[in-house]
């Protein structure tokens, strides 16, 4: 079954999402740890200020992105809400954990605890919309965003749903940046050119997916799959493309999850597509557990606009823009594939 993308929104570190022209500004924690920060909208214009007052940044970003996405799709009430998050509302978890240790378990505020659960955002969106439909949240490392989308696809086919709101969010906080650098996941090296995606990032991206084709849709998700890396790249791609009756030569562009110009993790894939454009995205959003939602948003925008921003190219081979294949290694074990077309 094909899914159509009816509406999108992304709150990301990149400015001017319609035509991104430069990489985001790099911010620092403790004057040394580089990272990206989302450019956030004016929330008061989107969310009831009375509710806004106790929301963390992740909640504001996630909820605002969801509401803006529904507006973009011209949908007031989705049939279901499914979210994905790597670390959830980490600011609230960090706050409650710190408080509980510092105060020796006494006089703790309930709000950070309540909002630390991973389903906070999906249920808050439902609460704001009074949406009683299906509601779920996938969490943790791995293909959580892809699984949320898979769930949406099953729901649409099982229950005849028309509009499912699917999204992902992850916020970055100072303590987490410190830990990520200490773990050696990011290098604090000034020699390396700043124009790289290998920095901690964050973002919220939402989509309204539907089984119905329409002129106003952004793009079509012809197929997507989460595959185990035990199989060779060549076999993964050939099986996936055969299933979708398309040849390697007909793939206009591939978008890969590399995080720097020197990242060799994807050469086994890029080598398979000598005539396709190669695009990347992590230099525009940073590295985080649900960055593939940003990739999907960027790719469908490119297809809708019939144009790819220059900054997204690693290699330009053709001027066609009818389809994009996203290839993203979500963990060492799993690779996610999305075949999109306009």
């Amino acid at each position: 079954m094909e899914l159509y993308i009816k509406g999108i929104n992304s709150i990301s570190p990149s400015e001017n999402f319609d035509n991104i022209s430069h990489i985001p500004e790099i911010k620092l924690v403790d004057e040394i740890y580089k990272h990206y920060v989302c450019i956030e909208p004016i929330y008061k214009e989107i969310i009831n200020p009375l509710l806004l007052r106790r929301m963390s940044r992740a909640m504001k970003m996630g909820i605002a992105s969801a509401l803006l996405c529904l507006k973009d799709a011209k949908i007031e009430m989705p049939d279901a809400i499914i979210t994905a998050t790597g670390l959830g509302c980490i600011e609230d978890s960090d706050k409650f954990l710190t408080l509980l240790i510092e105060n020796e378990e006494k006089m703790l505020n309930p709000t950070p605890f309540i909002q630390s659960t991973h389903n906070t955002i999906s249920s808050q969106i439902a609460l704001l919309l009074k949406c009683h439909g299906y509601n779920s949240t996938y969490a943790g490392r791995g293909a959580c965003f892809e699984t949320a989308l898979l769930d949406a696809k099953m729901l649409i086919s099982d229950d005849d749903l028309q509009n499912v709101l699917v999204g992902a969010y992850d916020e970055l906080i100072a303590n987490q940046i410190r830990i990520l650098y200490r773990l050696g996941l990011f290098k604090n090296n000034n020699k390396i050119n700043d124009n790289q995606g290998n920095l901690p990032g964050e973002g919220a991206s939402f989509f309204v997916v539907s089984p119905n084709p329409s002129e106003t849709n952004y793009a079509k998700i012809s197929d997507f799959e989460i595959v185990n890396n035990l199989i060779s790249a060549k076999k993964i791609i050939s099986d996936f493309l055969v299933k979708n009756s398309i040849t390697i030569g007909n793939i206009n562009s591939i978008m890969v999850g590399i995080n720097s110009c020197f990242d060799t993790h994807y050469t086994e894939y890029t080598d398979l597509f000598p005539n396709s454009n190669i695009l990347w995205f992590k230099h525009l959003c940073g590295e985080y557990m649900t960055s593939s939602a940003f990739a999907l948003c960027l790719a469908v925008k490119c297809l809708k606009n019939y144009s790819i921003p220059e900054i997204a190219f690693i290699r330009k081979n053709n001027n066609k823009n009818n389809n994009i294949l996203i290839i993203n290694k979500v963990t060492n074990e799993q690779t996610a594939l999305f075949l999109l077309s306009n």
């Binding site: 009375l50 106790r54 006089m107 703790l108 505020n109 309930p110 709000t111 309540i114």
Partner: peptide
């Protein structure tokens, strides 16, 4: 003020603190 039960719990903490 349009406060709710979570605010009530916050106020209980405030009074103790």
């Amino acid at each position: 003020l349009g406060l709710d039960s979570i605010d009530a719990l916050e106020l209980i903490v405030l009074i103790e603190k």
